[in-house]
């Protein structure tokens, strides 16, 4: 039975699931279909962060143009352009055993592609969630439904996994802000 989280909640990931090595982080959302300028394109990304909350190099930013981290520990499974269909819209595969020692936490974000140009924001996105699966058996370990609290933001940090006393924990962050992927990148110290 998966643990359902609410905003700000932190839970053990590896401690409760001994032997867990590869996790699949799935992100999903629905967008309302109206006419008008453009379709929605939401993108998931992962930031591999040091103890200071910043990336060590640009390669620590794993997204649609940098699908795999050099360490092989984090792999973006590809870009879904429309958000159509059931199930996860985008997935990120993480091999916890390969995460370099200098990486303290990995943040998962969702941003709206060209939000400003397309006059879009998260107000038009519903049923957004993140869940963590055991890649070995596809069992859902953790689930966090983001609810209706996002609106005019164009980027959000959905959740993160972080090291804690030799184990990995999950934090349901759920904080949104404006400025899209660029602002997020700058926040994490990526040269964008």
């Amino acid at each position: 039975m998966a643990v359902s989280l609410s905003k700000g909640q932190k839970v053990d990931l590896t401690k409760n699931n001994p032997g867990l090595s590869k996790i699949l982080v799935g992100l999903g959302w629905d967008t309302n279909k109206y006419d008008g300028g453009y379709d929605f394109d939401l993108d998931a990304a992962a930031f591999l962060l040091g103890a200071n909350g910043k990336v060590t190099s640009d390669a620590d930013f794993v997204f649609y143009n940098n699908l795999k981290h050099p360490s092989g520990s984090v792999e973006h499974m590809g870009d879904n352009r429309t958000g159509a269909g059931e199930g996860d819209d985008e997935q990120i595969l993480i091999d916890l055993s390969k995460v370099p020692a200098n990486i303290d936490k990995i943040d998962f974000t969702v941003t709206i592609y060209e939000a400003d140009e397309r006059q879009q924001n998260f107000g038009q996105v519903s049923n957004a969630y993140i869940h963590v699966l055991d890649d070995a058996n596809s069992r859902e370990l953790i689930r966090y439904d983001l609810g209706e609290d996002f609106s005019v933001e164009t980027a959000m940090v959905v959740g993160e996994i972080y090291r804690n006393a030799g184990e990995w924990k999950f934090n349901a962050i759920g904080s949104g802000f404006k400025g899209g992927l660029r602002a997020l990148g700058l926040n994490y110290g990526v040269n964008v």
């Binding site: 453009y38 379709d39 394109d41 997204f63 649609y64 143009n65 870009d79 352009r81 429309t82 592609y113 060209e114 140009e117 992927l181 660029r182 990148g185 964008v192």
Partner: peptide
């Protein structure tokens, strides 16, 4: 179905 061009860079989409 929407045809979106390849994304080259996030600096200047």
């Amino acid at each position: 179905k929407i045809v979106t061009p390849p994304k080259e860079t996030i600096v200047i989409p």
